[in-house]
């Protein structure tokens, strides 16, 4: 199963959602797989921060569906967030974990999930996230996307994907600061709120 194909399937289901995603090759893949979601997606920069940040966004916008596109390396970096989700039970957070069993962006050394013993979906269930599954085919993945995007409990799908990267795709040029402004202005416009307003005159 290719991550890019999964992204295309997920992207086809998204419209008004907000997305937080990880660093590495998945950024450029998402940029191309979901061009209509570029302004609604924030490309986070750190292992362990993606799902916590998505949860914070979900807590602040409880009426809005938030999608976290995390990774095996990222989730293993901070498993505690699964326990926090288990306790907090956000009604509007769908978590996808791209599990390619490697640290792809630095050349592919194995992560802990590569050895057949570590099961992130089982860890999530043990942490109190009852709806946590592993998908190995596009059909399974797409079905979980449909359910996860409609769920009123936290929903996790671990997508077992190949270590390959979609070839010949357009690179995203913006950095974290520009990404933040683009994302914040999109949230402001779509929510009718001010997050980063004008300076005071004094």
């Amino acid at each position: 199963m290719k991550r890019y194909d999964c992204m295309k399937a997920l992207a086809a289901r998204l419209k008004d959602e907000l997305v937080i995603l990880s660093l590495g090759a998945s950024v450029d893949e998402w940029y191309n797989a979901a061009p209509h979601m570029r302004e609604a997606s924030l490309f986070q920069q750190q292992l362990g921060c993606v799902t916590p940040q998505a949860f914070g966004l979900a807590a602040g916008l409880p009426h809005r569906r938030i999608v976290s596109l995390d990774t095996d390396g990222g989730m293993m970096f901070n498993l505690g967030i699964l326990a926090t989700l288990g306790n907090e039970q956000p009604k509007n957070l769908f978590v996808v974990v791209w599990d390619n069993e490697m640290y792809q962006s630095i050349g592919g050394p194995a992560t802990h999930t590569a050895f057949g013993r570590v099961d992130i979906a089982a860890i999530a269930r043990g942490a109190g996230v009852d709806y946590a599954y592993t998908a190995r085919t596009i059909e399974e993945f797409d079905e979980h996307c449909a359910k996860g995007l409609a769920a009123d409990v936290p929903y996790v799908v671990v997508a077992k994907v190949a270590g390959s990267v979609q070839p010949d795709i357009k690179r995203k040029h913006s950095d974290g600061r520009e990404d933040k402004y683009i994302f914040v202005r999109h949230v402001e416009a779509s929510e009718g709120i001010t997050i980063m307003g004008p300076s005071e005159h004094n």
Binding site: C49, A54, G56, G60, L61, N78
Partner: peptide, 9 residues
């Protein structure tokens, strides 16, 4: 990180 997400909301 959660606080960062709240800021974005």
């Amino acid at each position: 990180a959660i606080c960062g997400g709240v800021f974005l909301s």
